[in-house]
Simulated scan of single mutants.
Amino acid sequence: MEKKPYVLWLIWQNQDTRQRYHVGNLFHEDGKYTFSYELSGKRRTLFEAMESGYKPHLSFRNVEKTYVSDRLFGPFARRLPDKRRPDFNEILKDYGLPRDYTEMDLLRATGGRLATDPYEFVAPISVLDDHFNFDFFIAGWRYYDGDTIENQLQVGSKVNFELEPSNKEDNKAVIVLSDSKGHKLGYIPAFYSGFMFDVIRNNDIYEAKIEKVNPYAKPQLKVNISIVGRFKKGYSTTSIKDVEPVQYV
């Protein structure tokens, strides 16, 4: 079986509107790192981000260029915890990473987040044949019912989704609801919601459950949801790039 590249999406957040956009893709394959901007997506990608005020990263000014390196690009490597830290092994343990982790593993686990800028890395939507899977942290957690029922949320519990086409900020918004009493926990992040909106609308098969609960984390990292599913027979995936990252948002 052909080995697929390891891919992460680069996300940028407008600090005023709090909206997030999928602006680039970082690949690692056969010892090479490549970075390119996301030019072909349907929504919440580079050009929409630029309309919202985004300017290309100073180290990657040419939006049409594919950048290649034998090492993880310096601007991204600096986002990783320093191996010389005395608590570095504890950091690996906290993120559930083995001692033989890769830099891409660590970048995915930490998101490469810094307090000084609006970037983060997230895992792509993975599509193989008629199956798909991805995971996400609930967006908008601080504004809804999550904090009041946090102690009731259990890893492995199912969650439900509700479409919200009347949402003025995102006409493909998808609400995340607790399985038990239907409490509103927040939303699927917009760079994933277009894909899930269509999955739900087309009555495809999927299961969504709570993967992690982090009571001491920042609101945007409180609860992680995993989704596994498959497209119903006859559903066309020709519009989806079956090379990770899958771009359908």
Rank of each mutant, 00 (worst) to 15 (best):
K3C: 10
Y6I: 10
W9T: 14
L10I: 00
I11H: 06
W12D: 03
N14A: 04
D16W: 01
T17P: 05
Q19G: 01
R20V: 05
Y21D: 00
V23R: 04
H28Q: 10
E29K: 14
D30Q: 11
G31E: 05
K32N: 10
Y33E: 05
S36G: 08
S36W: 02
Y37C: 00
G41D: 02
R44C: 06
R44K: 13
L46F: 05
K55S: 11
P56V: 05
P56W: 07
S59A: 14
N62G: 00
V63G: 07
E64F: 10
T66G: 06
Y67C: 00
S69H: 10
D70K: 15
L80D: 15
P86C: 09
N89V: 03
K93D: 14
K93Q: 14
R99G: 14
R99D: 15
D100Q: 09
T102M: 13
T102Q: 13
M104H: 03
R108C: 01
A109Y: 08
G111C: 09
G112T: 02
L114A: 13
T116Q: 09
D117W: 06
E120A: 04
V122G: 07
S126I: 14
D130T: 07
H131G: 04
F132W: 07
N133Y: 11
D135K: 09
F136C: 01
F136Y: 11
I138E: 06
G140A: 01
W141S: 12
D145M: 04
G146L: 02
T148M: 09
N151H: 09
Q152Y: 11
L153A: 09
S157F: 11
S157T: 11
S157A: 15
P165E: 01
N167H: 08
E169H: 07
K172G: 01
K172W: 01
S178D: 12
K184G: 00
K184H: 14
Y192E: 02
S193L: 11
D198R: 15
D198L: 05
I200E: 11
I200W: 07
I205R: 15
E207Q: 13
E211V: 01
E211L: 09
K212Y: 08
P215C: 02
A217D: 03
Q220T: 09
V223A: 14
I227M: 13
F231L: 09
Y235Q: 12
S236H: 03
V243Y: 14
V246W: 00
